[in-house]
Design a binder for these strands. Sequence first.
DNA 1: CGTCGGGTTGAAGATTGTCAATCGTAGTGG
DNA 2: CCACTACGATTGACAATCTTCAACCCGACG
Lengths: 206, 206
Amino acid sequence: MPRLNQQFMTVKAGHQIKCQSEARDDVLVLCSGWAFRYIQLSDGGRQILRFLLPGDIFSPAAIFSKGMSFSAKALTEVEVSRLDGEEVRTQCRADELVMMEVFRSLGDNGRASYELITVLGQRPAERRIAHLLLSLIRRIAAHGEIPDQRYPFPLKQQHIADAVGLTSVHVSRVLALFRERNILTLADRTLQVTDPAALERLAALN
Amino acid sequence: MPRLNQQFMTVKAGHQIKCQSEARDDVLVLCSGWAFRYIQLSDGGRQILRFLLPGDIFSPAAIFSKGMSFSAKALTEVEVSRLDGEEVRTQCRADELVMMEVFRSLGDNGRASYELITVLGQRPAERRIAHLLLSLIRRIAAHGEIPDQRYPFPLKQQHIADAVGLTSVHVSRVLALFRERNILTLADRTLQVTDPAALERLAALN
DNA sequence: CGTCGGGTTGAAGATTGTCAATCGTAGTGG
DNA sequence: CCACTACGATTGACAATCTTCAACCCGACG
């Protein structure tokens, strides 16, 4: 099994990793830190499509299909590995497990997209934010056991706002509400959940 | 090249084609009529994820990845072809072109999802509706040349509402506005566009 | 002729956005 | 060590957008 050619880079917090019209056909993988995919609108708005954690592929869909145009930015300082697209494709054909991994990633992203569409279309502010927080918590927990319901959480309120389609002002108010109701506290780059059941009730998508 | 086993069914307008927890691992293809994918919420709300036109696969992602759970309904009377999942997968491995077709479909759906997320998160009612209408127009036009900017359009206002995350009452008001401004008229299962440029301006995602 | 589904309209209220001021904290440079 | 600054979070007042509820219309259809 040939080792794939890879090339590393590190990007500082807040800086661009990939822009909408990136021509190159490479596969980027997040090795450490947090990042996010987003679409930049000309009127200054931006929609965050998904947050990326270590191990995530920046654009799994782009491996087999052209023309996904979104940008990606580093949320914290990150390390990114760049693989040649063609090598990845031949590797997929050769190794069933690699292929499966790519499909799993594609499936996760698709499911997350549909959930986000549903949340944005059908849920009020509180429940949108609860859903985002719980989704992230689950993914963080899958990466390593977390003591005590305290999760590392590098997002600013503006990121939450851009992810769930609200203003940062409104996000601030909703988080204040959560704090008053003793559901969770978000401060100091840490998310502490005090009432996980309540959070799940709000985030539920049934 | 072996002909795939297929089995046809027709479903009347408004009836279920596939439900969220469909266990069977088959590939459904829409042969005629319109349908839509959606997620049903327990509180009565529903989010329409995508409208399907003839030739569309109900769940391209499900071919290679488990656990996409949405339902599908017929919008008009439809004909659906059912293929065995396993046969489709072996066919994909055998025939590069079939594989490419599936990837194209996956890519289209992914792109559409990201656009919908952006529209729902960042755009007000008018622009959401404009975006939906224009997307549909483009797809209809791709299916056969259309004279005169008059498009067949089987959606009720409730469908538009569930697709863009608004109430049907508000959809009605926005459509009235479009009519007053001579942008388009929606009546009688036909969509007539009188000012395509204005529609594109509203629908634009830049 | 009645009724039913879908569309339209008005009035009132809830949710969310906008604008602007304030505050706290962490640099940064003198 | 002390301004000075910059950034993010918070708060209040107000406005816009969208929903809710209810009534009504109208054409299709039994």
